[in-house]
């Protein structure tokens, strides 16, 4: 029972970060119908940024989110304006290849600058944990979970209550109709890509204290982001948050009951099952 509770709680804590990664991807997909294969690489950029801020300016990774978020918003917006914007009407395959190419450029540039060495960001609390009954709860994971909840709530409020947020949702619902209603869809696309990048980079900053940082770290997260968003339903924010938690739990359960080497197999098998049985995902529309 302890093992079960332990993996459930670690799974949920990890799932919070996954939810952020998935929300970022689904926001980009919702507004532009572009599957961003560079998603994990943008997260990698966020991780290195956090690392640099910590090593050179001594800024705590959780505090540095305040700097990473706006910087990565600009980074994402720039990528959208310079590259993605030109292929919005192209074949989906070409959009995918363009983002794959951008991801390769990011990871190899990181390799050029930082070499392929693994960097570790050790804070005073990196391995700290709180004992609760027979269960140990990781301190950095708990803080990061709380931050993901706050960020997700803020995003929810932004999309529901502000004019810009509503314009973004309108663009996601029907690009042409939104344009006819006088919404600047190009600007919304830039904002959406910027926000998506900020969210995934925040996830990167949050896991930086408990994860290795290396140039190829993104690939695994890109794949996970797909699993999360397809599971929740492409384009659905609530679905992505739910998908993130589910994937977090299945991963930690898989590691506890089947073996650490097999946990990703569990995740991908789940992914294939969803693709085959309910490709629209848990929260997606049935005709999607």
């Amino acid at each position: 029972m302890d093992v079960f509770l332990q993996s459930l709680i670690s799974g949920i804590l990890l799932g919070g970060v996954y939810a952020l990664i998935g929300t970022g991807l689904t926001l980009i997909f919702g507004v532009m119908r572009v599957i961003n294969f560079a998603h994990g690489d943008i997260q990698m950029v966020g991780m290195y940024l956090t690392y640099l801020l910590f090593v050179h300016a001594g800024i705590d990774p959780f505090v540095s989110v305040l700097i990473t978020f706006p910087l990565m918003f600009l980074f994402g917006g720039l990528i959208q304006k310079v590259f993605i914007n030109r292929v919005l009407d192209a074949l989906p395959q070409n959009q995918i290849l363009l983002t794959i190419g951008l991801g390769l450029i990011m990871s190899n540039t990181a390799m050029l600058i930082f070499t392929s060495d693994y960097k570790i960001l050790t804070t005073s609390y990196s391995s700290g944990s709180v004992k609760l009954g027979g269960i140990s709860i990781s301190q950095p994971m708990t803080i990061s979970f709380l931050i993901t909840v706050a960020v997700t709530a803020a995003l929810w409020w932004f999309l529901k209550k502000t004019d810009t947020g509503q314009a973004i949702r309108a663009t996601a619902q029907d690009r042409d109709a939104a344009q006819l209603m006088g919404i600047n869809v190009k600007r919304m696309s830039i904002i959406a890509f910027g926000l998506g990048s900020s969210l995934v980079a925040t996830a990167g900053a949050l896991i930086a204290p408990t994860y290795y940082i290396y140039p190829q770290v993104g690939a695994a997260f890109t794949l996970k982001a797909f699993v999360i968003t397809v599971l929740g339903g492409m384009g659905s924010i609530v679905g992505a948050a739910l998908g993130g938690i589910i994937i977090g739990i299945s991963e930690s359960m898989g590691a506890a009951y089947i073996g650490a080497g097999w946990k990703d197999v569990v995740v991908f098998a789940l992914f294939l099952l969803v693709l085959l049985l309910k490709p629209s995902g848990l929260m997606g529309k049935s005709n999607a």
Binding site: F83, R86, V87, A90, L91, N94, L97, L98, I100, G101, L102, G103, L104, I105, N108, T109, M111, L112, I113, T115, S116
Partner: peptide
């Protein structure tokens, strides 16, 4: 001298971006 050799895949990334944008 130290690092360029490790990043040889960079050229794949740059080429594919150029190809998709300018000669799909």
């Amino acid at each position: 001298k130290e690092n360029l050799a490790h990043a040889h895949v960079l050229i794949y990334g740059i080429l594919v971006v150029l190809v998709i944008l300018y000669m799909p």
